[in-house]
Simulated scan of single mutants.
Amino acid sequence: MAGSEPTRRGPSAGRFAYEGLDRVMHEKARLGVLTSLIAHPRGLAFADLKRLCGLTDGNLSRHLQVLAEAGLVEILKGYDHNRPQTVCRITEDGRRRFVEYLGVLEQVVRDAAAAAGRPAASARSGFADDPAPA
C-alpha cells in the first residue's frame, strides 16, 4: 500500500537501519572537523582546523555553524597577541555524541566485513590483504 510503513517481523527487522548515524556528523567535512577536535580537547585555532581538514574559510565556517547549532562544538572569539583569533572546541555533549556515533560506525564496518566474508580483525584494520609486519 502506498504511504504505509512496511511490516517488520523477526529479530533482524531494521538490523541495518543504523539509527545512530547522525546526519549532522555523517558528512565528510564535519566528520573531519569533529575528529580533529576530539583529538585536541583544548580546542584548535580556526586556521589550524582549516589546515587539518583541508577546507576553505567559508566552507569551514559553514560546517562549524551547523555543528554549533547542533550543540556539538563551541566557537570562542578572542585575541592572541592583539590579533583576533577564533578557537573551536568540541563540547562535552559533542564528545559523548561523537563517541556514540563512532560505535555505530564501527558496527557498520563489522557488519559489512561479515557480509563480505572477511574476518573481524581484518575489518578493523581495513587492510585484510596487507602482509603482516616483519
Rank of each mutant, 00 (worst) to 15 (best):
A2Y: 09
S4K: 06
E5L: 14
P6T: 05
P6V: 10
P6Q: 07
G10E: 01
P11S: 14
S12T: 14
A13R: 02
A17K: 12
A17S: 14
G20E: 15
D22K: 07
M25Q: 07
K28L: 14
R30K: 10
R30F: 01
G32E: 13
G32I: 09
V33P: 04
L37D: 12
L37Q: 11
L37I: 14
I38C: 06
A39E: 14
H40A: 15
P41V: 10
P41Q: 12
R42T: 15
K50F: 02
R51K: 15
G54F: 05
L55T: 06
T56V: 05
T56I: 05
T56C: 08
D57W: 09
D57L: 12
G58A: 13
N59T: 13
N59K: 13
H63C: 10
L64N: 09
Q65F: 08
V66L: 11
L67F: 03
L67R: 05
L67E: 02
A70L: 04
L72Y: 05
V73A: 07
V73Y: 03
G78A: 08
G78I: 07
P84L: 11
T86M: 08
C88S: 14
I90A: 15
T91N: 06
D93M: 12
R97W: 05
R97T: 11
E100G: 08
L102I: 12
L102H: 01
G103E: 13
V104D: 00
V108N: 02
V109H: 00
V109K: 03
R110L: 10
R110M: 08
A112S: 06
A112C: 11
A114W: 00
A115D: 07
A116D: 00
G117Y: 02
R118C: 05
R118M: 13
P119V: 05
A123S: 09
A123V: 00
R124W: 04
S125I: 02
S125G: 08
A128T: 00
A132V: 08
